Amino acid sequence: MTSDLKGHDGEGREFTSPDELWQTSADADGGHNTWYHKAVAYWDSQEASYNGVLGGYGYTSDLDVRDSRQLLLKAMRVQLEAADKGQRQLVALDCGAGVGRVTEQLLRHHFHTVDLLEPSKHLLDTAAKNLSARTVPQPRGVAERFFCEGLQAHNFEAGRYDCIWIQWCMLYLTDADFISLFQRAAVGLKPDGLIFVKENICKDGFVVDNDDSSLTRSNSYMLDLFERAGVQVLYNMKQRNWPKELFEVRMYVLKPPAAAAASAAAAADAMQG
């Protein structure tokens, strides 16, 4: 259980549990708006480039995308094959989209439509500019909607997405918002839709970064939150050939809570009817 996990920040402070962290970082009203605003302010100050969003490790983008593509092709083989045959139009949502790197290098090559969700306006504006440029050859998909919003606040359109891709942004969510996210995201998925989470992972407990209001969790911490959210973990894989001085990165493929998925399917059917 997460209540048994200990953590620390880079300034020598120890936390006996995640609950202690969330209590001490809460605003007077019990919410965490200051926590979230600090994270957005940090990214507003970063360079709007691949190198900027990757913390100076821009060269890792190819490594990242290669393993992501392999997992995507494995987990969504049936859906992608149907798209290749012209039998299905696929839609994805890129969460924590930054300057559109994942959409540009991965998602738009496999999905017909990609929406982007990013709380930093200057990063999202760069993404829109980058993705409007014509390339040769043209990728399969286009970027359609750009949401300047955080994951903790976004309401998903019912039944729109085959894939919700969440990369390097779960670490900004409180545990409560981490769990509630999956109930909301499940509504946004088609009946056979999947959620992909790619995230930094520490060895034990959790590590707080006060500069950008982030929380790097251990694999066991992540799995506990997934269980509490009611999602099924289909894949749990380690990113390969990653720089040893960086946190390990893991990739998770998740099926949403059954009740929320059923509600999403019913909503989608009602819209089509």
Rank of each mutant, 00 (worst) to 15 (best):
M1Q: 10
M1C: 08
S3M: 11
D4Q: 14
G7E: 07
R13P: 06
E14Y: 12
S17T: 10
E20R: 13
W22E: 03
A26K: 07
A26W: 08
A28L: 15
D29N: 15
D29S: 09
G30N: 10
T34A: 13
T34K: 12
Y36N: 01
H37W: 07
K38C: 11
V40T: 06
V40G: 00
A41N: 15
A41R: 14
D44S: 10
S45R: 14
Q46I: 07
E47K: 14
E47D: 15
A48Q: 11
N51P: 00
G52C: 09
G52H: 11
G52F: 12
G56K: 08
Y57M: 11
G58Y: 03
D62Y: 07
D62K: 14
L63F: 09
D64R: 05
D64T: 13
D64I: 07
L71W: 06
L72K: 06
L72F: 11
R77F: 06
R77V: 05
V78N: 13
Q79P: 05
L80I: 09
L80W: 07
E81P: 03
A83R: 15
K85A: 15
G86W: 11
Q87P: 02
R88K: 15
Q89V: 11
D94C: 10
G96F: 02
G98A: 02
R101Q: 10
T103N: 03
T103S: 14
L107V: 03
R108E: 08
H109Y: 09
H110D: 04
F111A: 08
T113P: 00
V114G: 03
L116T: 04
E118N: 10
E118F: 10
H122E: 00
L123H: 04
L124F: 04
D125E: 13
D125N: 13
D125M: 09
K129I: 04
S132I: 08
R134Q: 13
R134C: 04
P137M: 09
P137N: 08
V142L: 11
R145Y: 08
R145D: 05
F147H: 14
C148E: 14
F156M: 04
E157I: 12
A158E: 12
A158I: 11
R160Y: 05
Y161G: 04
Y161H: 07
Y161S: 03
D162N: 14
D162C: 10
I164A: 04
Y172G: 04
L173K: 00
T174H: 03
T174L: 07
A176L: 08
D177P: 00
F178M: 05
I179H: 10
I179S: 09
L181S: 05
F182Y: 05
F182P: 03
A186I: 01
A186D: 13
V187C: 00
G188V: 09
L189W: 12
I195W: 08
F196W: 13
E199C: 09
N200T: 10
N200C: 03
C202E: 03
D204W: 09
D209W: 10
N210Q: 10
D211Q: 12
D212P: 04
S213T: 06
R217F: 01
S218H: 08
N219I: 05
Y221N: 06
Y221T: 02
M222N: 12
L225A: 00
R228S: 03
R228W: 12
N236Y: 04
Q239R: 02
R240W: 03
R240H: 09
W242V: 11
E245Q: 13
E245N: 13
L246V: 11
Y252K: 04
A260L: 02
A261L: 15
A261C: 14
A261K: 12
A262T: 12
A264T: 00
A270R: 14
Q272P: 00
